[in-house]
Computed example of a mutant assay.
Amino acid sequence: MPKPIALPAVAPGINPHRNARTLEQIPILDPLLYQPHAQRPVRSKMRELDKDTLIMPHTHPWAQLALSTGGVIRLSLANATYIVPPHRAVWVPPGVQHAVTMVETARLYTLYFLPDTHGGGAQAHWMNDPVWQECRVMEASALLRALVVEMDVGSDNSLPLTLTQQERELHLSALVCDELRRAPVIHLGIRLPKDKRLKNLCEAVLADPTRHETLEQWILDTGASLRTVARLFRSELGCTFTQWRQQVVLAHAVALAAQQLPIAHIAAELGYTHSAFSALVRRTVGMTAATFLGQQQSAPTAP
């Protein structure tokens, strides 16, 4: 039995959905029961979770991939948040504190990856690349999703795997790692500020980005002036309020798209015309709205 890796204490700082509806907070399943080790360098667990469930902030010394089937999840860090639909997955490096909120009811698959510093060996060298030291959202191919679902999700309290099952898990996990290295990265995350006044405003926008139209309306509850808030956006987030809110709009579009809503409906829900929303997506992420939202454009019908 591998020696358990000590888990760091949870630090304060993550407060996902401060202004959103009440969430059902649940504890994490004991990570040590799914700890990856040299014989099983990639481990998987699965939970069926209801909408508005919050997995409390936590951290662990191995990397993590979170992927859901049939629902949207929100992964929150101290300084950023990511909204992830089923056709994408989110990577969390070792030691990064995070919380997970179920935007919709879904099965949540969590894969743990053993770094080579903890015994992962040569097969884990790819995780040492600087690009894997930051959180990232990636396209989850059909093959990657199928591989994840096939991984064994038993804990160390379950019956031990047979040699045949261990061999199969190693083959599956090697393919998972290969698919991850090939997966296109989606450069879309929502940065969060440190300033308390600005963070409260940003969390309110995250909860309901269409509630107000102008920054002047949003700042009424902050106790700060328009000039101060505008300056804080530039100094802490490196952008204007309008640019930051557009990122939030796109994140909410992802959540709506997971409900199989047409693009025109999604645009209207977010206060845009179809053409204006399509232009926003193209300008921000460099792809069509259909591609960004994981929707296949239907072929034109013959006259």
Rank of each mutant, 00 (worst) to 15 (best):
S225M: 05
L256A: 14
A258H: 07
R182S: 11
C239W: 02
W62M: 04
L175G: 04
P41Y: 04
I190A: 01
P262H: 06
S158F: 10
Y109N: 15
S173T: 15
L108H: 07
A183V: 02
T214L: 11
P2F: 11
S44P: 00
I28Q: 13
A268T: 15
Q243P: 02
M1F: 11
L161V: 00
L232R: 13
G271Q: 07
L77E: 08
V248L: 05
L111Y: 04
V285A: 05
H60V: 05
A140Y: 04
L250I: 05
L215W: 05
A122P: 03
E269S: 13
L65T: 00
V137S: 08
A89Y: 00
A66Y: 14
E134K: 09
L172V: 14
H125T: 15
H87N: 14
A257C: 05
A11D: 06
L172K: 10
P41L: 01
M1K: 11
M127E: 01
Q35Y: 03
T117M: 08
A204Q: 15
L7E: 10
T59I: 04
W91H: 00
A290S: 15
R197Y: 09
V137I: 13
A267M: 05
Q243W: 03
Q297M: 10
T288R: 13
W244M: 04
V205S: 01
T288E: 14
H58D: 04
W91I: 00
D178H: 14
T117R: 14
Q64S: 08
R182M: 12
Q35S: 07
V103T: 12
S141Q: 08
R197T: 11
A80M: 08
R245D: 02
Q97T: 11
L33G: 00
G120M: 05
W244F: 03
Q166P: 00
M151V: 02
T53A: 11
A106W: 06
P2D: 13
D50N: 13
L75E: 05
E48V: 12
V285N: 07
S235T: 14
T117I: 07
L147C: 06
Q133S: 13
M56N: 12
R211K: 12
R168Y: 05
N19L: 14
